[in-house]
Amino acid sequence: MSQSNISRRQVLKTAGAATAAAALGGAGVIGSATAAHAARDGFGLRIVEHDERDPRMKYYRFATDAIGWNPGVNVLLPDDYSSGRRYPVLYLFHGGGLDQDFITFDRWGIRSLSAGKRLIIVMPDGGHTGWYSNPVSSNVGPRDWETFHIAQLLPWVDANFRTYAEYDGRAVSGFSMGGFGALKYAAKYYGDFASVSSHSGPASLRRDAGLVVHWANISSAAVDLAGGTVYGAPLWDEARVSADNPVQRVPSYHHKRVFLVAGTSPDPVNWADYVQETQVLAGQREFRARLGAAGIPHEWHELPGGHVLRGDMLRRDLDGVIARLRKA
């Protein structure tokens, strides 16, 4: 694995790694932690498969009414978890694409990137084109990713691991579609996350005649929803778009750590790379301008290259997360 430029071109065959998502409700903040092993059912999740043998990486697959198949999650523990400490938690979201799932960051070297860092990292499934959303319509049964992540998985993690189940105990980050999901969740569920990071994730849904919303609808209809859509088609659910749009939720980023990364030179020959990162860069610049106008501090990086995860930026992000959150 290259820890500086992890290419996503092969992933972007049919699915979009841009953004979008839908509405849910109030935030779930529950938690009294138990052991690091022998996790239990709860919060609408029933464990149907698990592997807890690795001292750091714990694997679970759930049956849940929120999703029509059994989504998985990897929970990466710090090296010294056996010490009995409580730890802050980072929710780390994968991008869109046919080979993207909860194992993605393990393939990309998250164990070595996080070695020695006192942080629990939770990496759940989000669908190939789930957009971290409860879709307006689905022709294949429930695909309510927002419900799964916020109402079910978040309290389940706090109940089964030694976490700080509070605002200053949680961060959210992601790449591409997952970067948008991180920005969305941090704004909509303000009290759950004190730090938010987006690695090549879109931050503006309505710019350029709503290109990101259209892409979310098209990709989800083709790949995950059998003709259903995230935001509605031919007419959008405008309230959902506004609720999910980071540039329209700027006040919700007050008092949070905000970390943004985008590429400045996508491959002009690779259409998917060029269109996606060009849109990402423009949207992040719009978002940064609004954050600046509102007096909200933020760290941003524009780097050569296109729509790739930069391992050095992810490592920097992990250090920033730990610096912002409550210490283990």
Rank of each mutant, 00 (worst) to 15 (best):
A18S: 14
E146R: 01
R40Q: 15
F148L: 13
D54Q: 09
E238C: 15
L154M: 13
R315W: 11
F148H: 08
L153W: 00
L12R: 11
S176M: 00
P304N: 08
D317F: 01
G126R: 03
A20W: 15
G292D: 10
G127V: 07
G127I: 08
D101N: 12
V250G: 10
V308N: 07
E49C: 04
V308E: 05
R46D: 12
E286Q: 11
R162D: 12
A239L: 13
A66N: 11
K117E: 06
I218W: 13
V308C: 02
R118W: 09
P297I: 01
R143I: 02
S137D: 02
I322K: 05
I121G: 04
M57L: 13
A221R: 05
Y231P: 08
T278Y: 02
L183P: 07
V89W: 03
A182N: 03
D80F: 09
A15N: 00
L291G: 03
Y81I: 15
Y164Q: 08
M313Q: 15
A33Q: 04
P71R: 06
G31V: 04
S138Y: 03
H307V: 04
G116D: 05
V212I: 11
G263S: 00
D319Q: 09
G201N: 03
E238H: 15
F43T: 01
T14I: 14
R61E: 08
I150V: 10
L205D: 02
I30G: 08
D106F: 10
G130Q: 05
G311E: 12
V250K: 12
Y87E: 06
A239Y: 10
G42W: 00
W69V: 08
I218T: 14
